[in-house]
Simulated scan of single mutants.
Amino acid sequence: MSETQQAMAMLIRVFHKYSGKEGQKTTLSKGELKELLTNELGDILGKSNDKTAVDKIFKDLDANTDGTVDFQEYITLVACITMLCNEFFQEQ
């Protein structure tokens, strides 16, 4: 596989590593999202125990307001963080 295909496969694996522990296997609950953010993006986002911050991220991601974060909503988060990191490193 190409590097891009490997990256795509890894994003899919990471989502499914956390999804389904508390509910449907195709979505992330608030608790699952918090665990994913802490374990997978903690270096970027900081390891926050701030419930308000997690609630805000969850609310912002849950575009269809169904009380869960689906794969498309998760990918939106990853894409936004990637764009911010790109902008940061271009300014360096």
Results as ranks from 00 to 15, higher is better:
2 S>N: 10
2 S>W: 07
4 T>F: 11
5 Q>P: 00
8 M>S: 08
8 M>P: 00
9 A>Q: 14
10 M>G: 01
10 M>P: 00
10 M>E: 11
12 I>E: 12
14 V>W: 09
14 V>P: 00
15 F>N: 07
15 F>L: 08
15 F>V: 14
23 G>M: 01
23 G>D: 04
26 T>G: 08
27 T>Y: 09
29 S>V: 06
32 E>V: 15
32 E>D: 09
37 L>E: 02
38 T>P: 01
39 N>M: 06
40 E>M: 05
42 G>D: 11
43 D>P: 07
47 K>Q: 07
48 S>R: 09
49 N>A: 14
51 K>N: 09
53 A>E: 12
53 A>H: 09
54 V>N: 10
57 I>V: 15
57 I>M: 14
58 F>S: 00
58 F>A: 03
58 F>V: 10
58 F>R: 11
58 F>C: 00
61 L>S: 09
62 D>M: 00
62 D>Y: 00
63 A>G: 01
63 A>Y: 06
65 T>D: 14
65 T>V: 14
65 T>M: 10
66 D>P: 03
66 D>T: 06
68 T>L: 10
69 V>I: 15
69 V>G: 07
69 V>F: 04
72 Q>M: 07
74 Y>R: 04
78 V>F: 02
79 A>E: 02
79 A>M: 03
79 A>S: 15
80 C>H: 12
81 I>R: 04
81 I>F: 02
82 T>K: 06
83 M>V: 15
85 C>H: 06
85 C>E: 08
86 N>L: 10
88 F>H: 08
90 Q>G: 01
92 Q>H: 12
